[in-house]
Nucleic acid binder design. Structure first.
Lengths: 341, 341
DNA sequence: AAAACCAACGAAATGGTTTTCGGAGAATAA
DNA sequence: TTATTCTCCGAAAACCATTTCGTTGGTTTT
C-alpha cells in the first residue's frame, strides 16, 4: 500500500510559508493572491518561499470562508459512460483541471437513487450541478428549489425554466441527408431505432427537411430498435422491397453497421451502390466498419464544455438564461458515403 | 436556470440549530453525532431542531478539523470510460452511495496532467485514491510518499510495494481455450493484438497452458493490433494457410468481430465449422454479432468493488497487503462457441 | 455530614485561509 | 517644521464543526 511509510507527512500550510519568508500570514496570503498591497520585494520573497515548500492552499479552509467548495456534481444515468465521459472531459477542460473538481455520481436510471445522490452532492456543498441523461428525451426536472445552478446536458429537463443543452438532432438528420444528396444520391431511405425516442423523431424530421428542400421523396422509413440486428433485418427488407435505394440514413451507428453487413451479404457495394451514414460517431463502430462509416458526431465534449461554462457563469451570479438549447453537430466523413463516380 | 429564485438561501449552520434547541454549540454537535454525554431529552430537542431546519453539517468545516473528507479520488487514463465506468459503479456500491463521494479525474494518458490531477486531489484531502489504467501493463507508481492509501485497478503499479488489482488474464486465456476444447475443438488458433501488451502475452500463456493440458498443439498464433480490421485480415490468412482450424481464440472482442466477418465471407459457418471467442465482453460488440459472441468478462465492477473495499480498509488503518492481485474472470457463453453436434 | 463521584453541559481551542482594519513609517504638501 | 497623505504590513476576526477540558449540580459512598 502506497505511502505507508510517510503517511504522516502533513501538507504545508500558509503559516510555514509566512515564517520562511519572514512575514505575517496575512501578508503571505495577499502576496500569493496577487493583491496590490504588498511591496514587490516582499511578494518575491513569499512566492519564493511558497514554491520552495511546494505550498498549495487548502481548498477546505479557503472554501469554508468563501462559501464555495470549488466542486461540481455530475449526476448521470448513463450506465455505459458513452455520453458522460466526453461530457466530463469537456467540463474538465472548461473548469481548468485542478481548479474545480468533479464529483461523478451514477444514478443508474433509478429516481430514488438519483434523489439520494442529489442530497449527498448538496450536503457536500457542490457549487453547481450538471445532469446527464442517456437519451435526448426530456427528463423530469430536479425542481426549482435547488440552492445551486443546474444545467441539464444531453437529456433536457421537462421544465422550460431549467437550462438544458442537447444536440441538435433535427440538424443532424438534415446534415446527414444533405451530405448524401450532395454525393449524388436521390433514392434515400431511413432506418431508425425506437420511435419513442425523441432522437429518432428529431432526426427523421431533419431527414425529411433535407429531402423536401431538394425536391426528393423519402423511399422508406422504418423504426424499431437501436441494434445491429435490426439494422441488418431492416436493410434486407428494404432492399427487397425497394431495390432502387442508393443511400440509407441509419438512426445510429449500430444500425448502420447492420446495414453495411446486409449490403455486403447481398452483394451491394458500399459506397458505390449504396451509401450508408450513421449517428453518434462511436469510434469503435465507425472506424472498424467496412468501409469506415460516415457518421454525425454530437460534439459531446463541446457540449460538456459549454455546460461547464454555463454552470460557472451562473455560480458567478450571471444570468445564463433557460430553456432547451440545441447545440450544433458535426459531420465526420468516412468511406461509407464517398460520392459516386 | 434552476434555483435562481432561492440561490441566496444560506445553508443552515450548527449555531442556528443550537439556538433553536436552546443549547450550546458543543452540546448540539455531541447530540447529533451520537455521543453519549447528552441527556436523552436534550438530544431529542436538538435532533428535532436540526431536522426542522433541515441542517446538514458543512463538510468543509468537518474535514478541515477531522482530516477526513469522506471523498475518494478516481484517477483514470481511460479515455473511453470503458473500464473506469464499471469500476466507478463497483466503487459506489462498496462505498455505499452518499457515504463517500468520488472525484473522477481523467489524466488522458498524460503524465504531467496526472501529476497535476494528483496534486489537486491531495489538496482536496481525499481519503484515498484508486488509479485506473487503460491496459493491464504495469504503469509507473505514483510513489510511496502519498499521504493516503492508493489502490491500482486494472493497470497494476510497477512497484510491488503498491497494492494492485488486475484481471487474471492468464486464467482468461486458459478458460477460453478450455471452453473451446470442451466443445470438441482440437485445431485451435490464436489471433491477438499488440504483442507489447501484457494482456496479449498473458492470455497467450493461458491459451498454451490449456492446450498443453489437453495434449493439443496450437495451430497458429499471430499478434498485431486490437482492431476489427486486423481480425479480418488475420483470419483470412489463417484460414488460407490452415484450413483445418476449427476454433479461434481472439485477443479482444474487436478482433473476434473481424474473425466472424471473415469466416462469414469465406462461407465458414460459426459455430458449426469454426468457434470464435473474444475477450472483454464489450456488450455493444458481443450481443450484436452474428452469431452472438462468447467472451471472457473481466468482472470490472467486482474489481472496482474490491478496490474500494481495500481503500476503505486501509483508511481505517488495516493492513491490506501489497503486490499485484489477479482477480477471477468469467466466461460468458453465447452462440459463437456452441458445441459441435 | 463530608467526601468522592458522575452525568450533563458550556467555554474555548482547533484547523487553514481570507479579509478587514488599524498602525507605523516614509514621502509629500503647506 | 508641522500636517497630511500613502505605502506597506500585521493583528485579529471570520468561516463552521469537532473536541478537550473545566464547571455545575446532583447522587452515591463512607
Amino acid at each position: 500500500m502506497s505511502g505507508s511509510a510517510s503517511r504522516s507527512q502533513r501538507p504545508v500550510t500558509l503559516t510555514e510559508v509566512a515564517r520562511l519568508a519572514g512575514v505575517s500570514i496575512s501578508t503571505a496570503s495577499k502576496a500569493l493572491n496577487g493583491r496590490n498591497e504588498v511591496a514587490p520585494a516582499t511578494r518575491e520573497r513569499v512566492m519564493d518561499a511558497a514554491s520552495r515548500l511546494s505550498f498549495s492552499p487548502n481548498p477546505l479552509a479557503r472554501g469554508l470562508l468563501a462559501g464555495r467548495t470549488g466542486t461540481v456534481g455530475l449526476l448521470t444515468s448513463d450506465l455505459e459512460g458513452r455520453f458522460v465521459i466526453p461530457i466530463l472531459m469537456g467540463a474538465e477542460d472548461a473548469f481548468g483541471a485542478g481548479q474545480v473538481s468533479v464529483f461523478l455520481c451514477d444514478a443508474r436510471g433509478d429516481t430514488i437513487r438519483e434523489q439520494h445522490q442529489l442530497r449527498a452532492l448538496l450536503s457536500r456543498r457542490v457549487d453547481g450541478l450538471i445532469v446527464v441523461g442517456r437519451q435526448t428525451d426530456p427528463r423530469p426536472s430536479l425542481g426549482q428549489d435547488i440552492p445551486v445552478p443546474v444545467v441539464y446536458a444531453y437529456a433536457p429537463s421537462d421544465n422550460p425554466d431549467d437550462l438544458s443543452l442537447t444536440p441538435d438532432n433535427v440538424s443532424a438528420g438534415r446534415i446527414a441527408t444533405e451530405h448524401l444528396i450532395a454525393g449524388g444520391r436521390t433514392r434515400i431511405a431511413h432506418i431508425s431505432g425506437d420511435p419513442e425516442y425523441a432522437a429518432a423523431q428529431d432526426r427523421a424530421i431533419g431527414v425529411r427537411q433535407a429531402l423536401t428542400a431538394a425536391g426528393l421523396e423519402l423511399v422508406a422509413e422504418v423504426f424499431s430498435e437501436w441494434s445491429e440486428g435490426w439494422g441488418r433485418d431492416a436493410t434486407a427488407q428494404l432492399l427487397a422491397q425497394h431495390p432502387e435505394v442508393d443511400a440509407i440514413v441509419c438512426g445510429s451507428d449500430q444500425i448502420a453497421r447492420g446495414a453495411l453487413d446486409t449490403a455486403r451479404d447481398l452483394g451491394r457495394i458500399v459506397p458505390d451502390d449504396i451509401a450508408v451514414i450513421g449517428f453518434d460517431n462511436w469510434e469503435v463502430l465507425t472506424t472498424n466498419a467496412r468501409p469506415q462509416l460516415t457518421s454525425i458526431d454530437a460534439n459531446l465534449q463541446q457540449l460538456g464544455r459549454t455546460a461547464a461554462q454555463r454552470v460557472f457563469a451562473a455560480i458567478d451570479g450571471l444570468d445564463v438564461g433557460s430553456g432547451t438549447h440545441q447545440l450544433p453537430v458535426r459531420l465526420v466523413i468516412r468511406g461509407s458515403t464517398l460520392a459516386r463516380r
